[in-house]
Amino acid sequence: WVPDSEAPNCMNCQVKFTFTKRRHHCRACGKVFCGVCCNRKCKLQYLEKEARVCVVCYETIS
């Protein structure tokens, strides 16, 4: 899990986070992404309901 303080930009597209461009943690890899790069949901083994995942993890999992 990457702390918010260590991620000033999206770890995929590099967009800078602001008050309106929020950070989202991928529940699969723990990296920090913008809403566009972390907009998929899928079922993870260790969680009961679907969770937010990044586009890279989504392609790997599904």
Rank of each mutant, 00 (worst) to 15 (best):
residue 43 K to F: 15
residue 24 H to M: 13
residue 53 V to P: 05
residue 17 F to L: 03
residue 37 C to Y: 01
residue 1 W to N: 02
residue 43 K to D: 15
residue 40 R to D: 15
residue 59 E to L: 07
residue 46 Y to C: 14
residue 58 Y to N: 05
residue 30 G to C: 11
residue 15 V to M: 08
residue 18 T to P: 03
residue 10 C to E: 01
residue 35 G to W: 10
residue 22 R to N: 06
residue 18 T to G: 08
residue 30 G to N: 13
residue 3 P to F: 15
residue 32 V to W: 03
residue 3 P to R: 10
residue 6 E to F: 04
residue 4 D to T: 11
residue 60 T to N: 13
residue 22 R to S: 05
residue 12 N to A: 14
residue 37 C to M: 01
residue 56 V to M: 13
residue 12 N to D: 15
residue 10 C to G: 00
residue 49 K to D: 13
residue 34 C to I: 01
residue 2 V to M: 04
residue 28 A to H: 08
residue 47 L to M: 13
residue 14 Q to K: 08
residue 56 V to N: 02
residue 55 V to Q: 13
residue 52 R to V: 06
residue 39 N to A: 07
residue 34 C to P: 03
residue 15 V to C: 09
residue 33 F to R: 01
residue 57 C to P: 01
residue 3 P to G: 11
residue 44 L to Q: 11
residue 51 A to W: 02
residue 8 P to G: 07
residue 19 F to Q: 13
residue 3 P to M: 09
residue 51 A to Y: 02
residue 12 N to L: 09
residue 12 N to H: 10
residue 10 C to V: 00
residue 40 R to L: 08
residue 44 L to R: 04
residue 37 C to E: 02
residue 2 V to I: 09
residue 11 M to N: 08
residue 59 E to H: 06
residue 15 V to E: 12
residue 9 N to F: 08
residue 40 R to M: 14
residue 47 L to Y: 08
residue 32 V to R: 03
residue 1 W to T: 08
residue 52 R to M: 12
residue 10 C to L: 00
residue 8 P to A: 12
residue 36 V to E: 07
residue 27 R to F: 01
residue 11 M to I: 07
residue 43 K to L: 12
residue 58 Y to R: 10
residue 42 C to L: 11
residue 19 F to W: 11
residue 60 T to E: 12
residue 7 A to P: 01
residue 20 T to Q: 11
residue 54 C to L: 00
residue 27 R to L: 02
residue 5 S to Q: 13
residue 54 C to K: 03
residue 39 N to M: 12
residue 13 C to E: 03
residue 14 Q to M: 13
residue 39 N to D: 15
residue 17 F to E: 01
residue 3 P to Y: 15
residue 52 R to Q: 03
residue 27 R to E: 03
residue 22 R to F: 04
residue 36 V to I: 10
residue 29 C to F: 00
residue 28 A to E: 10
residue 56 V to W: 12
residue 49 K to C: 07
residue 30 G to P: 03
residue 18 T to W: 07
residue 6 E to D: 11
residue 32 V to T: 05
residue 29 C to N: 02
residue 21 K to V: 11
residue 50 E to L: 10
residue 11 M to S: 09
residue 25 H to N: 05
residue 3 P to W: 06
residue 1 W to Q: 15
residue 61 I to T: 14
residue 17 F to T: 03
residue 46 Y to R: 10
residue 14 Q to A: 12
residue 11 M to F: 10
residue 3 P to A: 07
residue 10 C to T: 00
residue 47 L to K: 10
residue 42 C to K: 15
residue 59 E to V: 08
residue 14 Q to V: 13
residue 36 V to R: 09
residue 6 E to T: 06
residue 1 W to K: 15
residue 33 F to Q: 06
residue 31 K to Q: 12
residue 39 N to R: 08
residue 55 V to W: 07
residue 46 Y to E: 15
residue 41 K to Y: 13
residue 27 R to C: 02
residue 42 C to S: 13
residue 2 V to D: 08
residue 4 D to I: 03
residue 39 N to T: 14
residue 15 V to P: 00
residue 36 V to K: 09
residue 17 F to C: 05
residue 3 P to N: 15
residue 28 A to L: 04
residue 16 K to V: 11
residue 58 Y to F: 06
residue 55 V to C: 12
residue 5 S to R: 10
residue 13 C to A: 02
residue 53 V to I: 06
residue 62 S to Y: 11
residue 46 Y to M: 14
residue 52 R to F: 06
residue 15 V to A: 11
residue 9 N to P: 01
residue 44 L to T: 05
residue 7 A to I: 02
residue 60 T to R: 08
residue 41 K to S: 12
residue 50 E to I: 10
residue 61 I to E: 15
residue 60 T to S: 13
residue 60 T to V: 06
residue 57 C to T: 00
residue 30 G to L: 09
residue 17 F to I: 03
residue 24 H to A: 03
residue 4 D to G: 03
residue 60 T to A: 11
residue 61 I to G: 14
residue 31 K to S: 13
residue 21 K to G: 04
residue 29 C to W: 00
residue 31 K to D: 15
residue 46 Y to G: 15
residue 52 R to E: 05
residue 10 C to Y: 01
residue 55 V to K: 09
residue 58 Y to W: 05
residue 36 V to N: 08
residue 6 E to G: 09
residue 57 C to N: 02
residue 2 V to A: 02
residue 38 C to T: 08
residue 6 E to K: 09
residue 55 V to H: 08
residue 33 F to W: 00
residue 25 H to A: 02
residue 50 E to S: 11
residue 11 M to D: 09
residue 59 E to A: 06
residue 29 C to G: 00
residue 51 A to T: 10
residue 24 H to Y: 01
residue 26 C to D: 01
residue 30 G to H: 03
residue 41 K to C: 09
residue 8 P to Q: 11
residue 17 F to Y: 05
residue 44 L to C: 05
residue 49 K to S: 10
residue 55 V to A: 14
residue 56 V to G: 14
residue 24 H to P: 03
residue 44 L to S: 05
residue 55 V to N: 14
residue 42 C to Q: 14
residue 11 M to Y: 09
residue 49 K to M: 06
residue 38 C to Q: 03
residue 25 H to Q: 07
residue 29 C to I: 00
residue 26 C to T: 00
residue 43 K to C: 14
residue 12 N to Y: 04
residue 34 C to L: 00
residue 1 W to H: 02
residue 7 A to S: 08
residue 46 Y to Q: 15
residue 17 F to S: 02
residue 1 W to G: 07
residue 57 C to M: 01
residue 30 G to M: 05
residue 51 A to Q: 13
residue 62 S to M: 15
residue 5 S to C: 10
residue 24 H to D: 01
residue 60 T to P: 14
residue 56 V to H: 11
